[in-house]
Nucleic acid binder design. Structure first.
Lengths: 232, 232
DNA sequence: TTATAACCGGAGTAATTCGCTCCGCAAGTT
DNA sequence: AACTTGCGGAGCGAATTACTCCGGTTATAA
């Protein structure tokens, strides 16, 4: 990212290919789940398999990079949300941005990739940012009092994919993709409105624990200790 | 279903196995997508592959049966919803029931199975029932005026799976499965509250067309004509 | 008990799909 | 021309697939 000086047209093409690759990987991963094949990803990106393997030594390396970029995006969105004046708009825009970027693509690879130190640090930071976003919205009384940060994380994950969109993409129905994307935004807007403080009846069940996230990314690294807290 | 008279303990075991098979198929399909293997389904059901193939001549036959049962469940839930006195509770319970049953398991096989005449008839009937449910809620002014039946269908599909639940099941973390299921219900309750009429701001974009559903189940049967309407 | 029938689980099989390597080729630079 | 740089995809061994087939187990009958 700091070294994006292009020194020739070949380098430029390589960068474009890399971006297309990551973009395609998100889409294919969302549509095919963890079994997504490198051939499918390369084809969706419009590049050859060879180009994929020149940049990433293995399939897992590509997925690892994808996870890191997603965390970066998540944190950027959270910072932008905190920068907004209105606490509600800040939280809502954060949710929408994360869901559209496709955070949900990560769920199928949660147990398969190795979690690096950097990723864990970024994940911790995202927990803090989200907790701040939630605390601010609570203090302003615009967010339902019994909604927690974990609820929000689960909601974002739930909307990280669109089943309709994924399937239409796999069928190659380019004509309907835009309509499906718009519809997905609509349904997400409905769900976000459900977070507003105007709803008096309490939510069912107890607030979920953040085990639902921390435990899923363990991957036999003996890492089961709580790494973050979701309360401010 | 009319012939459930058991004539011996062997038949009873066969019935239990069949139910376990269908239940497991829904779970594995949700977790693994369309590539879900018969071996995985049989293992999740706790039966041998042989038992699966004694009841269903092929993988597609199992999926077809699954789709039909889902439609039956959908219609039953809709009828129960219409039978309720309160229009809002009727619609809300319908949504929750469908989402929990795992309507979302069908999305990954949408393009792969042959759509029978019966299935299309049941699908048409479900469209009518949902339209009635929505119309009633609109007339009672308890449902946001700009929410359509297609919006509701998409919301149900969106909540037909839980990424967290699916992954925990695949990891065999039985201890967290109940927590994930409860959390999923919570998030769904949030989204359902977003449908209430108390929200004044209109939803973004235009109401989605039902092409988003009809086109996805076509499967080269030359069937592209509109089969139902979603407005009352 | 033994014979029979019904149903079970899963090893085995051919075909497919997988991740990945390797090499011939086109484009830019000197 | 010669050299460098990045490209696409054929091909390979390994893994996975849907499905078949058969030996074992349980319930009933004589």
């Amino acid at each position: 990212m700091t070294e994006s000086k292009r020194r020739g047209p070949r380098q430029a093409e390589a960068e474009r290919n890399d971006r297309a690759l990551l973009r395609a990987a998100r889409q294919v991963l969302a549509a095919d789940g963890g079994h997504a094949s490198v051939a499918a990803i390369a084809a969706a990106a419009g590049v050859g398999i060879g180009s994929l393997y020149r940049r990433y030594r293995t399939k897992e390396e590509l997925f690892q990079r994808l996870a890191e970029l997603s965390l970066d995006n998540w944190n950027q969105a959270a910072e932008r949300g905190l920068a907004e004046d209105d606490p509600w708009e800040g939280l809502a825009s954060f949710i929408v941005t994360c869901a559209e970027f496709g955070q949900g693509s990560l769920a199928p690879i949660a147990g398969t990739i190795e979690v690096t130190k950097e990723m864990r640090a970024k994940s911790d930071r995202s927990d803090e940012l989200l907790a701040a976003l939630v605390a601010r919205a609570h203090q302003a009384r615009v967010l339902r009092p019994d909604v927690t940060a974990v609820d929000i994380s689960l909601l974002i994950e739930q909307f990280g994919r669109s089943p309709a969109l994924d399937q239409l993409r796999k069928q190659g129905r380019e004509d309907l993709i835009q309509a499906a994307a718009d519809a997905h935004k609509r349904v997400l807007a409905i769900a976000v409105d459900g977070l507003r403080a105007c709803h008096s009846r309490p939510l069912p069940g107890n607030p979920p624990t953040d085990q639902l996230f921390t435990e899923r990314w363990a991957h036999e690294t003996g890492q089961s200790r709580r790494a973050s807290s979701t309360s401010a």
